[in-house]
Design a protein around this nucleic acid. Structure first.
Lengths: 246, 246
DNA sequence: GGGCGGCCTTGATGTAGATCAAGGAGGGGG
DNA sequence: CCCCCTCCTTGATCTACATCAAGGCCGCCC
């Protein structure tokens, strides 16, 4: 519908991007920067990129050139090990920063794919490191983001290591809800951008199990689900699924 | 046997610590620093702490004051969620850096416990952030370490999300082996510092399953295991467990 | 040196979720 | 507008691992 350019990485239109005037600035990398620092960021982030649904942003193994902040849209990242096993490592939405796993080795360690038409801001990594040396608040913010990713990963490990299928699903829905809310969308009603299989991959379950758990929540009137559309009817109830003893 | 001081956090003896002369310097935070930078590090890291087996270093919720680098010994870290579920998030040995998950929120997010008598170097976090602004190589190294932790977590997620019990065990043993090797110990023979239950917790398995998998490897002569002592007899064989199709 | 407690092993049985299988809904393209 | 393809749902069965249970080993403390 929109631009019709190259087959997959659609156009690099140098739309002037300004963090300082971006509605996501308090969710994104520049969160908490003072006006001066914000302006320096504006000079760093000069390119946006549009991705059509289904196209990739980078693949595992590619050298790290830039981090990417999602401006709009929805993406997934997938890790895969030597023997070709693949797993969704995370779902990402507006304000999330992609590519930080590549800082260590200099190469990306996962594939990222847009699950709907998505726009990302490109943040050249070398310049970012440089600038963050001059701006303590930026440095701190970068550390916060990396560290928060580690904490998130611990949560996923807990989920994968010790929760039942329904608990995982409940945690997943509540997490999505909360993230939508933080972005000003309804916490109780949203469209799943990913398939049951992708949810299953993320949660360490098969797609049939995901489907059954959703149906079960539906029957118990905790949620209303029809295809990709979800409405959460009973937040306390969903939380109880997560924590049966209380 | 050694010092007999306070009941749990034994002594803060200001043993002069010098990264520049530490045998772990190439595995630890100062890896790759030039002599000048190394000297600055020396001034940053002035305290060591000894932990007796079974004692904790910090607990989830405590404010972050310092990162800790393990000088000798062996530790575990545990995440726990609201409802009291607990899971081992990682095992740590000499050269590993603890506490980076706390940078985001300013508070620790897991408990850490020494699994044998352990010595750690204390790295005041504020000063570290400060110094890393002046030393690009240190900044970069800190980023590398955080990023590497994210990559490791992805590996654990893959393991928990899509591998069978025996695959998990094989991956676990090979990983330990490799880390011992990197520290100059035998890759093929070592003592497990943790119980079957802790291994199980880390791998999302019950202790009986861990025990059975180890016994099975033993019967197949992939390893020799007797209580905590493990000898790997057949590396290619163990790798085959991980990747059945090759 | 003996006994106690924590840790480990092994067997029998139970079960959550995987797998196999058969349709149904929705939506994009011809 | 219809067809096809992808995604989803639901049922029947199978299985890997959990759970329950009973002992054995080892190291520590008295």
């Amino acid at each position: 519908m929109k631009s019709r350019g190259a087959p997959h990485l659609i156009d690099v239109n140098n739309l002037r991007v300004a963090c300082s005037s971006c509605s996501l600035r308090e969710l994104c990398l520049p969160a908490g920067l003072d006006p001066d620092a914000m302006e320096r960021m504006d000079h760093l982030v000069t390119h946006r990129r549009r991705l059509r649904r289904g196209t990739g942003l980078y693949r595992a193994g590619e050298p790290l050139a830039a981090l990417f902040a999602i401006r709009s849209g929805f993406m997934k990242s997938c890790v895969l090990n030597e023997d070709g096993r693949e797993q969704v490592a995370g779902f990402h939405m507006a304000g999330d920063l992609l590519g930080i796993d590549a800082i260590g080795g200099g190469n990306h360690t996962c594939d990222t794919v847009a699950l709907e038409d998505t726009e990302v801001c490109e943040i050249p990594f070398t310049s970012l490191e440089q600038l963050s040396r001059e701006l303590p608040s930026l440095q701190h913010q970068l550390h916060r983001i990396m560290s928060r990713e580690i904490v998130r990963d611990y949560g996923v490990m807990l989920l994968l290591g010790s929760m039942s299928a329904e608990e995982r699903l409940a945690a997943f829905l509540l997490n999505l809800s909360q993230r939508f809310a933080a972005r000003g969308y309804s916490p109780s009603e949203f469209r799943l951008r990913m398939t049951r299989e992708e949810i299953g991959s993320y949660l360490g379950l098969k797609l049939e199990t995901v489907s059954r758990a959703l149906s079960s929540f539906h029957e118990r009137e905790l949620i209303k689900v029809r295809q990709k559309h979800v409405r959460i009817l009973d937040f306390p109830g969903l939380k109880t699924v997560l924590d049966p003893k209380r």
